[in-house]
């Protein structure tokens, strides 16, 4: 039996919608509408300066074309390597630091601030600092030469090293943020569990595996999901340090989206790459959601 609709209910809802309408309009105008528009033009050919009347529908051409586009394929390969290298490295290092600091260190807040500072400085500044550190007379080549290593490469000018420089920079930037999250997670682990474990004769390693890791699983899950999403959106270091080079060794999906749209005036093709990027992120995130049922403690 349907519930009778009262005017007072309608009035209450209208008032509620009126209050949220400005924000809702903003979301619709600046988020939902552009997303819908990008889906439409991903099936079209359009440079962004011609009038909308000159958008020509091309069906699945853009989606078919990208799989024979060497720059797109290089972007996918590089981005996958970047994500698979950056995320576990940053998480492992941050967790190790967090465990050590939580267990053994005094002055936790100072350490937290110092480590987090790499995350709050501007990416532009960080990129130029890394470029200076890696230049011929910079810190890293000087250290390596001082250690007796011959033939120190030009890291940013070497196809074998340029991508790893970006990965190292990403780990350095994100370490502090993940560390702070893990510190918070570790502080929520009940001390009694560790005491009980100690009484049962567990060592440090067993405490870590059987108590710490399961108890911080929700934090780990959150970090994993968000860091993978961020790693597929990498753009600024590529634009500033390498422009996708040398060759196409540091092309990334977000960078190639930008190049296609604004250098080559192929907004339709660029939109299709964006939707493929969305699909990658969506698939990764869904896989993690499925896996969390097994390994994240409720």
């Amino acid at each position: 039996m349907h519930k009778a609709i009262k005017w007072s209910d309608i009035k209450r809802q209208l008032i509620a919608y009126t209050f949220i309408l400005p924000n809702l309009m903003g979301v619709i105008l600046f988020t939902l509408a552009p997303v819908a528009f990008s889906l439409v033009i991903s099936f079209s050919s359009w440079d962004y300066v011609s009038p909308l009347s000159q958008i020509s529908f091309t069906g699945l051409d853009n989606y078919m074309r990208m799989w024979t586009d060497n720059w797109f394929l290089a972007s996918v390969r590089n981005n996958l390597i970047y994500a698979l290298a950056t995320v576990p490295s940053a998480m492992a290092l941050a967790l190790a630091f967090a465990c050590i600091v939580e267990r053994f260190c005094k002055g936790k807040s100072v350490i937290r601030l110092l480590l987090y500072s790499t995350n709050i400085i501007s990416t532009v500044v960080a990129a130029y600092v890394w470029q200076m550190m890696l230049s011929q007379k910079g810190l890293i080549p000087s250290l390596l030469s001082g250690m007796g290593i011959k033939g120190v490469p030009f890291f940013l000018g070497d196809t074998k090293w340029a991508l790893w420089v970006l990965i190292a920079m990403a780990v350095w930037t994100n370490l502090g943020y993940i560390f702070v999250l893990y510190m918070a997670g570790l502080q929520n682990v009940p001390e009694e569990l560790y005491d009980a474990c100690t009484v049962d004769g567990c060592g440090e390693f067993q405490r870590f595996i059987h108590i710490t890791v399961p108890m911080i699983a929700p934090t780990t899950f959150f970090i994993l999901v968000t860091q993978i999403i961020f790693s597929f959106r990498v753009f600024t270091p590529v634009q500033l340090l390498t422009h996708g080079g040398p060759g196409s060794s540091t092309y990334m999906l977000a960078y190639y989206v930008y190049v296609s749209a604004f250098q080559y005036y192929e907004m339709g093709y660029s939109a299709s790459i964006t939707w493929v990027l969305f699909a990658f992120i969506f698939i990764f995130t869904m896989l993690q959601w499925k896996m969390q049922d097994k390994w994240v403690a409720s």
Binding site: I28, L32, A36, P51, L52
Partner: peptide
């Protein structure tokens, strides 16, 4: 339904603007 209507209205507006755009 209300949200969908609002979105549809927005898309119609976008489409209509293309019909009115003169070729520069």
């Amino acid at each position: 339904r209300i949200l969908a209507l609002a979105l549809a209205a927005m898309l119609i507006l976008v489409a209509c603007s293309s019909a009115q755009d003169p070729a520069p």
